[in-house]
Design a protein around this nucleic acid. Structure first.
Lengths: 148, 148
DNA sequence: AAAGCGCTTTACGTTAACGTAAACTTCCTC
DNA sequence: GAGGAAGTTTACGTTAACGTAAAGCGCTTT
C-alpha cells in the first residue's frame, strides 16, 4: 500500500535522470518489458528495479548486452534446470572477478588522488608564503616612501 | 639500472594486452607522446605509466577525453599557477565523488551477487535431494524386481 | 474546435573508440 | 637479393548507445 505499483515513462525518466529515448531504447533491446494501455507504456516496479540495475551496470562498465544476458539468465534460473544454475554460478564468479578488479582500481586511484591533493596543497602553501613575503616587502617600501 | 627505460609499441601492446592500433590512437588523441627514432616510436616509462592510467581510467568509466584533460591539467600544475592549482583541487573532488559512487555501486552489487549465489546453491541442493529420492526409489523397485 | 500536453512510431544522424585493409619503409636473415 | 618481421601512414568501416527531427494519436482545457 505504501508503494506505487505502476509508472509512466516520464516518471521513470525524471526519477533516474535519463531521457525517455533511452528508456524506449532499453525496451527495444529487450531489457525492459512494460505492458501497454492502448499504445502507452506502463512500467511495473520490476521494470523500475531493472532500470536501476541497468544504470548501475553502465556505471560499472557493463554493456547493455551483458546486462540483458544476466537478466535473461536470472529469469531462466527461476525455472531451475541444473545446467542453468551452474552457468549462473560461473557468471556470478565472473562478476565477482570484475568487482575485485574494480576494487583494486579504486584503491589505486584513491591513493593517487590523495598524493596529488597533497602536492597541490603544498604548492599552494608555497605560493602563499611568497605572497606574504612580497606583501611585507611592499609595505616596507611604502613606509620608506612615505618618509622620504 | 634495474628498470628498462624505453619500449617499443609491441612491447607495450603485449604487456598491457591492447592492440598497437589502440596505442597509436591514444597518441593521436594526445594521451601519449613517444619520441621517434626515424619513423619508429620510442616510448618512455612516463608513457608506460600513462598507458596504465588510461586503461584503468577506461575500466572506471572515464572517456579518453576526460583522461587527457587530467593529464594536461596535471602537467600544467607542475608549473603551478594558483588558479590552475585550485582547478586541480576541484577536479580531484569530482574524481573523489565518482569514486564514492563506484564504491556504493560495488557494495550493492556484491550484496546482490551473494544473495543470488545463495539462491542458486539452495536450488541446487533441492535438485540433489530430489535426485537422491529418485535413486532410492529406483533401487527399491530394482530390488523388488529381483525378488519377484 | 483549436490548441496544447504527453505519448507514440519511424527513421536518419552522431560520437567514441577503435578494427581492418592497403601500400610502404627498414632492417635482418637466409 | 629475396623474403620476412616489425614498424609506419592513410583512410574507410564498424559498433554501441543513444540524439534528433518529423508526423501522428488521444485527451482535456479553453
Amino acid at each position: 500500500m505504501t508503494e506505487k505499483k505502476t509508472f509512466s515513462i516520464s516518471e521513470l525518466a525524471s526519477e533516474f535522470d535519463v531521457t525517455t529515448r533511452s528508456i524506449r531504447f532499453y525496451e527495444d533491446q529487450g531489457l525492459l518489458k512494460p505492458t501497454r494501455r492502448g499504445q502507452t507504456r506502463i512500467f511495473s516496479t520490476k521494470d523500475k528495479v531493472r532500470l536501476k540495475l541497468i544504470l548501475r551496470g553502465k556505471r560499472m562498465g557493463f554493456s547493455l548486452a551483458e546486462t540483458k544476458e544476466t537478466f535473461d539468465l536470472w529469469d531462466e534460473t527461476l525455472t531451475g534446470n541444473e545446467k542453468q544454475l551452474l552457468k549462473m554460478l560461473s557468471i556470478l564468479d565472473e562478476k565477482r572477478a570484475h568487482i575485485e578488479q574494480q576494487k583494486a582500481d579504486i584503491a589505486m586511484a584513491e591513493l593517487e588522488i590523495n598524493t596529488r591533493e597533497a602536492h597541490c596543497r603544498e604548492a599552494l602553501a608555497e605560493l602563499q608564503k611568497k605572497k606574504q613575503q612580497q606583501e611585507s616587502t611592499i609595505k616596507q617600501s611604502g613606509h620608506t616612501a612615505e618618509q622620504s
